[in-house]
Nucleic acid binder design. Structure first.
Lengths: 114, 114
DNA sequence: CCGCATCCACCAGGATACTG
DNA sequence: CAGTATCCTGGTGGATGCGG
């Protein structure tokens, strides 16, 4: 792997980490796993997130194609957010990360005891 | 996958992202791929990182078992950092992330054109 | 050379209050 | 209900200077 190639590789990884990183993105996605939810429902489900931040996060997730915002007219306004099919493309990455994270925790624990 | 299980899963993922996330960790690891380097060499190689931050990052990487700090006495002091064997355990995660990141970039590009 | 201590600027994100 | 506006705080990270 030469320098150029390595740099591309790095960029792609950093993109990926950026997209799913941060404190909230994954939690929001998880909260929508079972069913579509409304803004306040997500806020309650995730817990501890302010409206401003949730609003921004949802915009990001929508831009990245993970979430679909669906607006129903009327008063009061009703809006639901649901996961897109594309959000499933995250599955293999998440499994890989989860496995590594779990085994890493074991590794650290062993090392700290030793 | 019930709630409990899901929560464990989430934690493991967040641990993993935390460990390799941030602006510098991966770049530092990459810089040590070919050979062990001294503090200032890493700083130059990575580019744009301050001594304080590099110092902290190296401590994190050492605690997580990715990097080994090797100190040679004398004056001036000589210190080199090298990757551990354990750092290879990141490989499959990084490949997965890189592939997903690359394909996601394509996905976004197509969607923006459309 | 290595790397910590100090000081400082910036900004992500929380709390609250408010509008459509 | 869905979000925005405003204000404010804490923490991250840059710059510089010093000590081992």
């Amino acid at each position: 792997m030469d320098h150029q190639e390595c740099h591309q590789h790095l960029n792609a990884i950093e993109d990926a980490v950026y997209v799913i990183g941060g404190k909230w993105k994954l939690r929001i996605i998880l909260s929508l796993q079972q069913q579509a939810l409304r803004f306040n429902e997500i806020q309650r489900e995730v817990g501890g997130i302010s409206a401003k931040v949730l609003s921004n996060e949802l915009k990001d997730l929508e831009e990245n194609g993970f979430v679909k915002r669906r607006e129903y007219p009327g008063f009061p306004m009703k809006v639901v957010y649901e996961l897109t099919d594309y959000s499933n493309s995250l599955k293999s990455v998440m499994i890989e990360l989860s496995q590594w994270g779990r085994s890493h925790k074991e590794f650290i624990k062993r090392n700290h005891q030793a």
